Amino acid sequence: MTSVPLTTPVIDARGLGRDFTRVSGPLLRRRRERVNAVHDVTFSVAPGEIIGYLGPNGAGKSTTMKMLTGILSPSHGRVRVCGLEPSRQRTLLAGRIGVVFGQRTTLWWDLPLRDSLALTRHLYRVPAADHAARLAELTELLELGPFLATPVRQLSLGQRMRGDLTAALLHAPELLVLDEPTIGLDVVSKSAIREFLLRLNTEQGTTILLTTHDLGDVERLCRRVVVIDHGSLAFDGDLARLRATAPTPRTLVVDLAGPADPIEVAGARTVRVEGPRQWLELSANPAEVIAAVAGAHSVADLTLREPDIEDVVARLYSSGRAAAGAPRREDPVSG
């Protein structure tokens, strides 16, 4: 397998766009109209980067991913992935990339995980010795041993995700494309997946493109984020600059011992009250606010909630600092 030279982007998208035809109206008076799902998206990913490709539902993330992996052909612009044109060289590209969709599985439902991974070897035509060495390495890193003999349908969501990651990595791809890899996972499973991805990137130099709604994934994994909204590129930079561009406050959820008047402390504003539970929007250091609340009230529980990516993107647009001239589209067709 020939790797992409270090000077060549693993992903290079220029003016990328995808149109769909939408049919509406009564049966005998059908109307057809062209809808831009993705419009004039330009970005590149260097070898060894971990990029968060973010945006709310319907923003165009899934459509972009399908173009990058060759499932869809672009209507406009061009894209190269690992030096290949995805839609025309899809079979070649499949041997160079790994893809994991958090809500779907590539494993065989009724087979033990070990047998599913053996079939994956044949799909990618991986030599037996290479497969055995790679599987042993991934089994150790992802702690697959206790459930390799378990049918996939009996695996927990976290175990299945680790199996899907293994299947996507057995042929040693240069690029790993992840769509919501931690969706629905518990805190422990999320942490295990994140640490594995960091190690994969650091030790093996695997380039990772990640879509997620979980800012915890982004903060732990990504130095750079690309935000798409209404099919157009809204932001490309590091997470700190995104937060500075579209500051979105954290929320402190306070469960008091009983119903009380809205909490008043410096650095926070109570935005919602339901019985003994109150929601405080923070404008100061969370530790200082928590200390003030705990010192003045009888607290049963506290939860600090990070803003989700939809809130960040909404702020990005409402601030008027989205990419200059980026056109918006109505009724998004695909996420």
Rank of each mutant, 00 (worst) to 15 (best):
H213L: 14
H213E: 11
H213T: 06
H213F: 10
D214E: 13
D214P: 01
D214Y: 01
G216N: 09
G216D: 06
D217V: 14
D217F: 00
D217T: 14
V218N: 08
V218L: 01
V218H: 00
V218A: 11
V218M: 02
E219R: 05
R220I: 14
L221V: 10
L221A: 03
L221W: 00
L221R: 05
C222W: 00
C222S: 12
R223W: 01
R223Q: 14
R223C: 07
R224Q: 06
V226A: 03
V227T: 03
V227E: 10
I228T: 00
D229R: 08
H230P: 02
H230C: 07
G231E: 06
G231H: 05
G231V: 09
G231N: 04
G231I: 07
S232K: 04
S232W: 05
L233R: 10
L233E: 02
L233Q: 07
L233A: 10
L233C: 10
A234E: 15
A234S: 14
A234F: 04
F235R: 07
D236W: 01
D236V: 09
G237E: 14
G237A: 14
D238A: 12
L239K: 07
L239F: 00
L239A: 14
L239W: 00
L239V: 07
A240T: 12
A240K: 08
R241H: 07
L242E: 12
L242N: 14
A244L: 07
A244I: 05
T245V: 11
T245A: 15
A246I: 07
A246N: 03
A246D: 06
A246M: 01
P247H: 11
T248F: 00
T248I: 13
T248N: 02
T248R: 03
P249G: 11
P249H: 10
R250L: 09
R250C: 06
R250V: 13
R250N: 06
T251A: 03
T251L: 08
T251F: 08
L252C: 05
V253S: 14
V254P: 01
V254H: 04
V254T: 12
L256H: 03
A257W: 06
A257Y: 04
P259T: 13
A260I: 03
A260L: 08
A260C: 11
A260P: 15
A260E: 11
A260D: 15
A260K: 10
D261S: 13
D261W: 05
D261R: 13
D261L: 02
P262R: 04
I263E: 09
I263W: 04
E264V: 15
E264N: 13
E264F: 09
V265N: 05
V265P: 00
A266R: 15
A266D: 15
A266P: 13
G267E: 12
A268I: 11
R269Y: 03
R269P: 13
R269D: 11
T270A: 09
T270N: 00
V271C: 06
V271P: 03
V271N: 04
V271Y: 04
V271F: 02
R272Y: 12
V273S: 12
V273R: 04
E274K: 08
E274L: 10
G275Y: 02
G275W: 02
G275C: 09
P276L: 05
P276W: 02
P276Q: 09
P276C: 10
P276I: 02
R277S: 06
R277L: 01
R277V: 07
